[in-house]
Design a protein around this nucleic acid. Sequence first.
RNA 1: GCCCGGGUGGUGGAAUCGGUAGACACAAGGGACUUAAAAUCCCUUGGGGGCAACCCCGUGCGGGUUCGACUCCCGCCCCGGGCACCA
Length: 819
Amino acid sequence: MPISYDPEMVELKWRQRWAERRTNCVDIYGAERPYYNLMMFPYPSAEGLHVGNVFAFVGSDIHGRYRRLQGWDVFEPIGFDAFGIHSENYALKVNTHPANLIPANIARFREQLQRTGLMVNWDHALATTDPAYYKWTQWIFLKLYEAGHAVKKEAPVNWCPECKTVLANEQVVDGYCERHPGTRVHQRYLSQWFFTITKFAERLLENLKTLDWSESTRTMQANWIGRSEGAELIFETPSGTRIPVYTTRPDTVFGATYLVLAPEHPLVEEMTASEQQAEVGRYRRQAIQKDVVTRKVGDREKTGVFTGTYARNPATGEAVPIWIADYVLMEYGTGAIMAVPAHDERDYEFAEKFGLEIRRVVAPTGGPDPMGETDQVEADGADGLPFISWDGVLVNSGQFDGMSCAEAVVAITEWLDSQASGKSQVQYRLHDWCISRQRYWGPPIPIIYCEKCGNVPVPERDLPVLLPEIDDFRPDESGLSPLARHEEWYRVECPQCGDLGSRETDVSDTFLDSSWYYLRYPSTGKDDCAFDAELSRRWLPVDSYIGGNEHAVLHLMYSRYITMVLHDLGLLEFDEPFTRFRAHGTIVKDGAKMSKSRGNVVVPDEYIAKWGADTFRMYLMFLGPYLEGGDFRDEGIAGIRRFLDRVWALSARVGPASGAMDRAAVRKLHQTIKKVSDDIEGLHYNTAISALMEFSNTLRAGSSGDAGANPQLLRPLIIMLAPFAPHFAEECWERIGRGGSVHDASWPTFEEELARADQIEVVVQVNGRVRARLRVSPGISQEEVLGRALNDDGVRRFVGGRQIRKTIHVQDRLVNIVV
RNA sequence: GCCCGGGUGGUGGAAUCGGUAGACACAAGGGACUUAAAAUCCCUUGGGGGCAACCCCGUGCGGGUUCGACUCCCGCCCCGGGCACCA
């Protein structure tokens, strides 16, 4: 009686052997065919590893293991993104210092990850909280600072009263804090460090085209960068002040009947007539203090006030009133717009409300008389305004009347350019990256302020600037980091003049930690550089990166930016870090996202304990397409376990190697090799697994009785199973008497000859409906198929004596007879 | 509002350069084995009709193109994600 499959025993055994034999450790210096397989390192939460993590990692691990079986030297590292607001908030909640919490969390994660059977090289694990790591995070800040890419500026920031810190725009969800969905975010003005990512907008956008990335991710990045083409036009006041506005519709300038400045616009004061000062001042204060919710997300009822002054429309020469309104944002374009109410929804709404002139300058094309005749539009009840479409011709626009909008954009821009009152202009929505955090749990920003010398970077030899272990790490209302309460820490000598200076007390954004971790992995342990030049040359850029699309814009954009800057500084040979990126899907339970409040969270440990890691891995990969995600159901997992039990049984009674091989089984084998290889390549793991199931079903059907499975068929099955169920495959490999590790075997080769069927089914349709199926040899000619089809009783019944009008023949697939 | 995905049996999901819809699995029902149960193995399983060979209907809804549409086009509905007064 063969022993039954006991996952716990098998997995424990191989975990130990792999560790002893260093099976998962690649030769970091000598690898000949290096392949860098990266997964997104987790934040080590107190709750432990989430199924979402397991799903992500296993999918990446399968890819790495598959590449290894193809003969690559695969480097598969992992680390811990342990700094940041998540850790800190949790520490505050349980009232324990994060430095005491993190090591335990990491230990737990490590244990869980090891049980999952990832091919991780633990020698290269890292944690962003390790001074040996953040020393180099600070070093990167210094590099950017030296290059002029780190600048300090006063800026309105999102302030969360609950977190008591500024938030990145990305951390604000619909005007509420992402951490505290019930807390409105307010505006505050603080002096902060920014990285000048906007300077790289064009390059970040342009490079996207060359990257082998998930389409959805590239689209999101492109939208985030938000490039638009238009013109900057100048409206001049009688006193000679030039007010630049940005517009994407310079063709409509003749319809610009008023001007709007953002409330924060620096020219507001100058533009305000004395009799309007009180009202403007009131509106301004109100708008500036208004929290982000009401301003950006509220009911959006248009508000604004007239400044009492006018500027000259550069096209018409007319004086147009200058208003201020909060629907114009200071942070985009020039912070001022020309309002064309006839051709912009927002301007239209505003003009209607305040009784401003609405002048049509574009008529829809296709009307009976496109030259100013608007009956066509008025026919449907309204006057057709605002008319937003580009599909029109100019009217009321002087010498430009009759031009199409597209033509007019060019012509009018050139015309205004020749009068020095306009030029074409490209705009981006991307903002500079604010990296300052008024928090405790992060790497201190390595700057010292000196009365005499100004901002002085900490000399490299003094890195890292250690984060002191203070007890009162709780942020307060001051808006300053808790470090600002520790004079003994921030009081230091100025490295330049030796006078008493003070350290920057803000720490840096977690996204900075994670923007370069993949550069560090090959070089962990090196204390004389962030990343070793030779190792970087061998391993980077990353060959495959798989992760969630929730990081599509932030982490992935910042990583690209940092890489680009380091490249330009001559520190890296490449300027894009991730050659190939794939976004995996999300896994849901009972059709809903897993969350504690719903009580539908799947804890991986329980399932691994009950079913084993291999079954759990395979089930996660089987429940839906990897790139789309799927629904986790407890009932489904049994099917995978049954499958493994059957393969186990097959490998228990191996037949003689010399035994004759069933031709059909060999054919199925080669079809399976093809299918599984292609599917793994495209990350279609669910269908790869079903192909393996089909093949094992074939094998079982063919090995009934005592004959046993032919090892020449079984061996490739076990190899193909190895990426999915690494411990299980290893044990089967040993059971069928193979030496070494299955993970050092070679992926089976597909032979087309052997995969080809000698009998295939051709469908016979009459008028597009299936009426018969014929078994024929491949390559059969049209005449022969047709002849046989017309002899078929079923077909004859439907053709009857009728005239055949046409036949359609698809080689080896079908023939359609049209009567 | 705009930009991406996606809607297929009782369930998870297969199949899209237009060519056999429902692979694989779950659940369910029946049978074998067993003193019995579990496990295992075998069979059935989209809906409807027929004794049967077979026939009709069927991929969110409504049109269209085609010999032929889950697949392409037009117009909608619903679900998930992203962006959102960006001029």
